[in-house]
Design a protein around this nucleic acid. Structure first.
Lengths: 166, 166
DNA sequence: TTGGAAAGTCAACAAGGCTGACATAAAGTC
DNA sequence: GACTTTATGTCAGCCTTGTTGACTTTCCAA
C-alpha cells in the first residue's frame, strides 16, 4: 500500500481485476442512490428521470438550443420532444424563438420550472453533500478525477464546457 | 485549497453548491461511459442492460437464489423473470433446485454464459482500468469512498457483502 | 434560388420498469 | 394432519423512455 501510482515496475495493486470489479459495483449501487431522492419527487409530479435531466441542463445553461440539449442528453429529437412538450405545456419551460437565427428555439425555465428544479437539485445535493462530507475533500477530488477519466470524450467536452462556465 | 477536510470552522470549499453540481454532472456523464462498452456487446446479442446486471451478479455469487438476486438488483420478480427466462432458454444460465430447501432456485452461469460474462466485464474493465490508471491509486480510493457514502444503506450492505467475499 | 439546418410531428416498435392476480410446491407451525 | 407462509413462476396490462423512418415548415446562407 505504499504505491504512489506512478506507472512503472510496481505491482499496481489498485488495478487488479478484483479492484476493478469493486469499482464497477460501486458505480452500480451508488448510481441508484444518486437518483433515488429526485425520483421520489418526480413521482409526485408525474414526471420521470428524463424530465429531470432536461430541467437540470436548461437550468444550468439558460437559453440553450434544442440541438444542444439533444447533444448533451444523448437522445433523439423525438425522445426529447416528448418530454419537452409536457414541460412546456405544463408551464415549466419556455421556448423562445432565436433572435439571430429564428430557426432556433432557446429554452428557459419559468418560475414554476425553477421551483421544481430547486426541489430536485436540493434533494440530490443533500445526499451528495453528506457523501462529500463523510469522505472528505481529498476523496472528493479523487472521485471527480476518476469519473472524468471514465467519460467518453464527447461527453467530457460537455462536462468541461459546463464546468468552466461558472 | 489548503483545507484538509476536518469539519469545523473552515470554509469547506468542497461543499459549495457549485462543487456539488459538478459532482452531480460528473456522475451523469461518467455513468454513460460506464455502460457504453458493454451496451455495444449486448446489442449484438439482442440483450439489454438488465441481462448484463443479472449475469454480473450470478457470476459474482454463483448459486445465489432468485430472491437474493431480486433484492440486489432492486427490481420486481416479474421484471427479473422476463430477463432470467431468456437467459435460461438461451442456455446462459442454469437454475438448480435447492438441495436443502427445494423451493429455492440456485442460479449459475453455464460455460456459454461465462463466456459472455467475460466479454462484458472485460469491456467494462478496460475503460475502468484506463480511468484508474489515469487518476492514480489515491484518487481511486477517494472515488470508492464517495460512491460508498452515496449508497442507500440496504445497497451498501449488498456491496459490502460482495466486497468482503473475496 | 436552392440546399441544408433547426425544429416539430406522426406512427410504430422495443426494453424494461411497474401492479395485481393467481398457481404450485415446499417448508414450517400448531 | 390442517393450516399458513415462503419461493418461484406466470398471465395480463400499463407506463416511461428509448429507437427508426418519414414528412413538414421555417429560415439561413451560398
Amino acid at each position: 500500500m505504499a504505491d504512489t501510482g506512478a506507472p512503472g515496475g510496481e505491482t499496481l495493486l489498485f488495478l487488479t481485476d478484483e479492484q476493478l470489479r469493486k469499482g464497477i459495483e460501486a458505480m452500480f449501487f451508488a448510481y441508484r442512490g444518486f437518483t433515488a431522492d429526485p425520483d421520489r419527487i418526480l413521482d409526485q409530479h408525474d414526471y420521470g428521470r428524463a424530465h429531470h435531466r432536461a430541467i437540470h441542463f436548461i437550468n444550468r445553461e439558460p437559453g440553450l438550443t434544442v440541438t444542444t440539449l439533444i447533444s448533451v442528453l444523448g437522445v433523439t429529437k423525438q425522445s426529447l420532444n416528448r418530454v419537452l412538450r409536457t414541460l412546456i405545456d405544463d408551464g415549466l419551460v419556455e421556448s423562445r424563438v432565436g433572435r439571430r437565427d429564428k430557426r432556433e428555439r432557446h429554452l428557459h425555465l419559468t418560475e414554476k420550472g425553477a421551483v421544481l428544479e430547486r426541489a430536485l437539485s436540493e434533494a440530490q445535493r443533500v445526499r451528495m453533500r453528506a457523501a462529500y462530507r463523510a469522505a472528505g475533500p481529498q476523496a472528493v477530488a479523487g472521485f471527480r478525477q476518476v469519473l472524468e477519466a471514465m467519460m467518453d470524450p464527447a461527453m467530457r467536452r460537455h462536462y468541461q464546457m459546463l464546468k468552466d462556465a461558472e
